[in-house]
Structure formats: structure tokens, C-alpha cells
Write a protein that binds this DNA or RNA. Structure first.
Lengths: 332, 332
DNA sequence: AATATTTCTGTAAACGCTTACATTTTTATT
DNA sequence: AATAAAAATGTAAGCGTTTACAGAAATATT
């Protein structure tokens, strides 16, 4: 259908090899012929056939990101970040979500085996043993986005949850003067959540504040879980003056309970969260929370991947931590 | 690197042609050889080289969706819908967002010209003249997701904004007994917004309610715009009893103003929205709004595209409207 | 048993490009 | 002017498939 180098070769009265070289700006093509060919190419509206080139070059100029799903707060931002870097490297991005019908491991193997992509960025909630094994013996460029239980031999990018929680707690103590700070945990299997708790505890310790057992409440990252936890905290005899929810959803749950009790944030009790989801901006008063630079995660992962892709052999495995920042609202 | 049909051919002592046929389940290959080959393929962990196949078949098994951005409320859902259908058709999906660096038109042309994809789904806020021209003379499978000012010759999918707004207004009147209903418009250049207004007006008319000029207020789809519009409405001498905001964001703005005036929703004034964004679920009282089945848009677009891809020649251009539904909250 | 028919398999070209190697043309050196 | 060196171009193979066509093997028909 479309124009091929053969067409151009005919018109320029040269061989297709010369055309190929001219279009790839090869140095040893006479200036005049190069110009002629490039002019013809433009005239004929020639675009190289990507597929043919791939077949011989064994390089697709496509990377893929595989994630649990494509919606939600985080994933789009990550995709955006990756896409940005991919674009700059002249690469295309294939987004694959491993929904029910399609399993993650399968996806990776497929992609790579079919030589469809040059590399993949993999985001998984947790790394199964099967996956771990595959990753450990992997022989294609891959970067994993995931907090913990990582595979040593595979490049990874994650959020510094510990630092984020530490900073927030420290902020509450030293900038805002709170001492009675409760913490609502996330699910304990979730390593992100666990790191946040550790950050909180470390900050208390470094500030010589003893932690109270009954001020560390279990939660499940949902709004309902936040409500429950908050109710329990506020029915204690010794009530905290500030509540640090391990994520914004649970913080939103706290808001509900607090306002239903006729209490005021932050006068009666302060609330802070973690994640900086867009909802946090709509809460009144605006929630103070820990911002997770999601697009930076994507960008970092992509950059890492391209490092592998370019360096090839002598690339050293890296594990990057993305630091967080505090978004100051009016909730404390 | 990986196993090719040649490898299998050698081991099976047949030609590569036979291997190719056997693996494609061609009917005239002897049963025993077919089985041998398929067994070998499995043993050797053979996966067909997608690129080579593409080169001869001239079919990439990839479609692409091009959208303004990948984040936000709608886009991820649309992507999800498209991906679902693509997967079922054994296709891959490339997501391209036309961010600043990359322009939409360029993207389409690139994709198609390089024969990178078999078809594209295009979502654009509005159709420029340049784009219109390209679409009108297009010769590749494409489906546009977009409300109005569509190109007749190109398949399209859009939301039935008119019907949605009509239903909601009708619901307010006949199910909830409101008669004094104000409307906050979206930006007038936005055809979706305009259709919503028309739906509202039509419902009033059909119920013999005369519309009040000063109850139709301009808005801009933002939360701030909603606040402004709401303030104006509530400072009128003749105040409406219900406010229909053309999108949820503006409805959220109304919530702010109303609560700051010490009024109650829905007792003092009812508020309803349009879009059913996730925020609407978090507002208290929960917002009654028009649900837009975003994933269905994606699915429909994808189905349409595959119809073109399969039918090829004798495909009739279609313009689909996705109907909406009312989500009943406690705000009216 | 000889021929016709059907079933199966192999040969080779094609897809559009890149690139090692060979060959020709141009330029430099003597 | 003859030779050497450098620059430009062409030839052809190859990337991993698919597939038209031809040829061989197996089966059916007389």
C-alpha cells in the first residue's frame, strides 16, 4: 500500500541499499544523492515500515507497563510518567493491565517471548513465589515498581514510606506541637502500610515520646475502616489529640465520624493522612497529608529501564526509593 | 535467541512450511506429524515471532487508543473497556496520550503510516478542522469517541447527554415533586454541556413548567464555578428549590456554599449533578447524579472498531449513543 | 495392475528493511 | 600517467514467518 524504499530507489536510480543508508543518514553516501533521496522520500510521503525494521534490528522500540489495573488514583499518574520518558527515548508504550482474564506472569512472558517489546515495567501488589522465580532467572530488561520483598537481582522503584511517615509524625510533633498522636494502620500484610507504621514509631522514639498501645489501631485502608478506627480512638478515656491515618481514605473516614460527633477538625482533634489522593483536597478542612509523587515513580522506573536498554551488559542493579513530601492543609 | 520454526523443522525432519501449517492448525497436515510438531513446539517453549508474522500478514494485532491524557475520572475507565474487548479479540492495546510534546494528528498518522497498528480509537475534546479533514479522507479503521460535531463518515461513540439531563430533570419533577429547578451550565463551547442544558429545557417543557431565565446560570465545570453559580442562585429573591449542576464538580461547589450558609441539603435546597465521579460518593449527603457508563463507551468503541476490522469493505458507518442512568443519593 | 484422485509435504518467493562484503567511482599520492 | 587510498554504490543474504505452486505419497477407482 504505502511507499517503500524500493519505490524511492527506482525513482532515484539507485539501489535500495543506498536509499536505506541515505535515510538513516549514513555518512558515506554522497551528499547530492542523499539530498535527492531525502527529497523524494518527503515528496512521496514515505514512512519507514516499523515492522520490517524491527525484524532485522531485533528491537521493537516498544516498552510495556503491566499493572494490576489502569484506573484509580495512582496508576494513571505512573503511566503518564512512563509515557513521558518513553516518548523522549523515541519509544512507544504498551499498557497492559492484568485483569482477571489475563494473568501477570503470563503477560510478561508473552510479551517478551513474542519479541513484542524491548523491556517491561512491572507493577504488582505483591510478588508471588512463581513470579519471584521468573524474575530471578529473567533474561530480559525489567524494572519492578513495588515497595518491598523485592528480588535483589531486578531493578526496582518504590516509595519511601518510612521516611514519609517519619516526616509527618515529626511535623506534628515539632511544628505543630502535638504529643498525643494516634496511628491507624493499614492491612498488616501490606508492606507499604507496615513501613508507614515503623516510620511513625521511629519518629515518636526520636522525640522521646512513648507510644501508647491502644493508640495504634488496625485499619484496612478503606473509608469504613477509618470510621471504625476513629470511633474506637475517640471513645477511649485517654483520647489522642491527633490522628495519623496510614492513608487518606481512612482519614476521610475519620472526618465523617468526627463531624457526626459534633467535633471540629483541627480544634478538637487533628487528622492527617498519607497518599494525597485527590479526595483529600475536597475534604473540609483540607487534609494535611503525605504526597506521593506518583509520576516520578513512573519516570524513574522508565529511566531505569532505558538505562538497562542502553547500557545493556554492564548495568548495575539499582533499587530506588522515591521520597515523599508533606502537603499542608488545615486539618492540624 | 528464541526458538524458531526452523529449529522445530529440523527436529521433526520436515520443512518449515509444514511446521508453520501444523502450528496454525492447517487441516491438511497429517495428524501424526501435526501432533509431533505441536509436542516439539511445547517442549522447546516455542512462541511465534509476532513481528515476522506481521510483516507477511500485514496485520499487527495491535490497536491504539489516543486520548488527551491518561489520568482523571474518565479515561482510565475507557481504557479498561477498550482493553477488555481488545483482549477478547486477541489484540494488544497501545495507549497514547497526546500530551504537549505530541500532537494528536501526528500520532494517528504516525501509527498508521508505520503500520504499527491495525486501527485506532480517537478521543478528542473537540475536532479541529485539520483533524476533520484527515478523518474525512481517512482510509484506515478509526472510531472517534466524542459527543458532537462529528464527522459523518467516521464511526463514533458518545454519551447521550440530552437523555441523561432529561431523565434527571424528569425525575426531579415527577418522582420528587420539584418544580423550581435551576440549572448550572457548563462552558458553552462544550457540546456535551450544551446538550445537557437542552435536555433540561426539554423536560421542563414536556412537564409544562416554564423556565426562568435567571435560573439558568453559566458555569465552567469547575468547583469554583459551582460555588459562584450557587451563591448567585441563592441570593435571588425567588430562589429555586433544586439545583441541577451540569457536572458533579460544580455540584460539589454548591455543597460548599450551601453548608457555609448554614443550609441543609436536601431540606432547604436539593442538589443534583451529572457524571457520577467518585467524589460524588463521598459528599454528604451522597449526591444524586447521572451515571455515565464510561467503560461501556470504551467497550462500544472497541467493538465498533473490530467490526470495521472484520467486516472490512461493507461496513456501515455507525454513530452510537451511550445512555446514562440516575444514581440515587440523598441530595434531593 | 494401471490410472485417477486425494492427501500430505516440500520448494521457493515474498513481506520491507538492514548490512557485510564486493565492486566501482572518485580523489590523492607518487 | 600510473598507482594507492578513500569514498560511494551495488549485490545479495538474512531477519522469521506465510503461502502459492509443485511434487510425492497414499488411497480410491476402474
Amino acid at each position: 500500500m504505502s511507499v517503500t524504499i524500493k519505490e524511492i530507489a527506482d525513482r532515484a536510480h539507485v539501489s535500495i541499499a543506498t536509499v536505506s543508508r541515505a535515510l538513516n543518514n549514513n555518512q558515506n553516501v554522497k551528499k547530492s544523492t542523499k539530498e535527492l533521496i531525502q527529497k523524494l522520500a518527503k515528496e512521496l510521503n514515505y514512512t519507514p515500515n516499523f515492522v520490517a525494521r524491527t525484524l532485522v534490528k531485533k528491537k521493537t522500540n516498544v516498552i510495556s507497563i503491566i499493572l494490576p489495573e489502569v484506573g484509580g488514583e495512582f496508576f494513571p499518574e505512573i503511566i503518564k510518567g512512563v509515557d513521558q520518558i518513553a516518548y523522549r527515548n523515541n519509544y512507544h508504550l504498551v499498557v497492559a493491565s492484568s485483569h482477571s482474564e489475563r494473568n501477570t506472569v503470563e503477560s510478561i512472558l508473552n510479551f517478551m517471548a513474542q519479541s513484542l517489546v524491548d523491556g517491561v515495567i512491572l507493577m504488582v501488589p505483591s510478588i508471588s513465589n512463581q513470579l519471584k522465580e521468573i524474575l530471578a532467572t529473567k533474561k530480559f530488561p525489567i524494572v519492578v515498581i513495588n515497595g518491598y520483598n523485592k528480588v535483589e537481582s531486578v531493578d526496582s522503584v518504590g516509595i519511601d514510606n518510612f521516611q514519609g511517615a517519619y516526616s509527618m509524625t515529626d511535623y506534628l510533633i515539632n511544628k505543630k506541637g502535638y504529643k498525643d498522636i494516634a496511628f491507624i494502620r493499614g492491612p498488616s500484610i501490606n508492606s507499604d502500610a507496615e513501613q508507614r507504621k515503623l516510620g511513625y514509631l521511629a519518629a515518636l522514639k526520636d522525640n522521646d515520646i512513648e507510644y501508647q498501645d491502644d493508640w495504634i489501631i488496625n485499619g484496612d485502608f478503606t473509608i469504613k475502616g477509618g470510621e471504625l478506627a476513629c470511633s474506637r480512638l475517640l471513645s477511649l478515656i485517654k483520647k489522642p489529640k491527633a490522628i495519623f491515618a496510614a492513608n487518606d481514605m481512612m482519614a476521610a473516614g475519620c472526618y465523617k465520624v468526627i463531624s457526626s460527633l459534633g467535633l471540629k477538625i483541627p480544634e478538637d482533634v487533628a487528622v492527617v493522612g498519607f497518599d494525597h489522593i485527590s479526595l483529600s483536597e475536597f475534604l473540609t478542612p483540607k487534609l494535611t497529608t503525605v504526597h506521593v509523587p506518583t509520576d516520578e515513580i513512573g519516570r524513574t522506573a522508565a529511566k531505569l529501564l532505558f538505562k538497562i536498554l542502553n547500557d545493556d551488559e554492564n548495568h548495575e542493579v539499582q533499587h530506588r526509593k522515591i521520597t515523599t513530601g508533606i502537603i499542608i492543609g488545615e486539618s492540624c
